[in-house]
């Protein structure tokens, strides 16, 4: 089993923060909740395209696990589907947070307790990565079921490219 590709939040055997390798890409979501599967889908595409030192983590977005996944990393890239109002399904947003700035940025995740809480908590606990980049895609549908809606499916190529671009220029 490829722990690096499937491990969610257990950085190193004991899951210690700081045991993480320098760069981590986290795909947040659930492929059984339609467009919520965008993050895991992008992670699957990245699997054969990234260097060995890049850790790929699929996460349900639960804050403690997100923090465990990115603590100690120099760069963390998070791919997530988001609700937007008004919504343009498939529209992509790129949000850069470094430790100093963006105190009030709390992205709205598709999850009850999500990315916003994870960032707030990580800041309070001094467990933010040096740099956090969020790639978010606006979702059309979060109901039960498998398969992305057409607009979000079409956006996964651009999302994958955007993540690879960030990795190449890191």
């Amino acid at each position: 089993m490829n722990q690096a590709a499937t491990g969610a939040g257990a950085g190193g055997p004991a899951g210690e923060p700081g045991g993480n390798r320098a760069v981590v890409v986290i795909g947040v979501g659930n492929e059984f909740r339609r467009d919520d599967g965008a993050g895991p889908e992008v992670l699957a595409r990245l699997r054969d395209q990234v260097a060995d030192n890049v850790r790929l983590v699929v996460s349900d977005g639960e804050p403690a696990r997100l923090i465990e996944a990115w603590a100690g990393a120099s760069l963390a890239l998070v791919v997530d589907a988001v609700r937007a109002d008004p919504v343009t399904p498939g529209r992509i947003h790129r949000l850069v947070l470094d430790q100093a700035g963006a105190e009030h940025v709390r992205p709205v995740s598709s999850h009850g307790l999500g990315l916003g809480e994870a960032i707030g908590l990580a800041r309070a606990l001094n467990l933010m990565p040096d740099r956090l980049i969020v790639h978010a895609v606006e979702a059309a549908e979060f109901g039960f079921g498998v398969g992305l809606t057409p607009a979000v499916a079409a956006a996964t190529d651009a999302l994958t490219s955007a993540v690879l671009h960030d990795l190449a220029t890191a």
């Binding site: 939040g9 899951g15 403690a64 465990e68 908590l121 309070a124 606990l125």
Partner: peptide
């Protein structure tokens, strides 16, 4: 809060060792 996260790290280590990963064990 760090104590709470430390408890979870131990739990996740059990899940990762026996379940193959810490969420949705495979």
């Amino acid at each position: 809060v760090e104590r709470g996260l430390a408890l979870r790290r131990t739990a996740n280590a059990i899940m990762a060792t026996l379940g193959g990963r810490s969420i949705h064990p495979v």
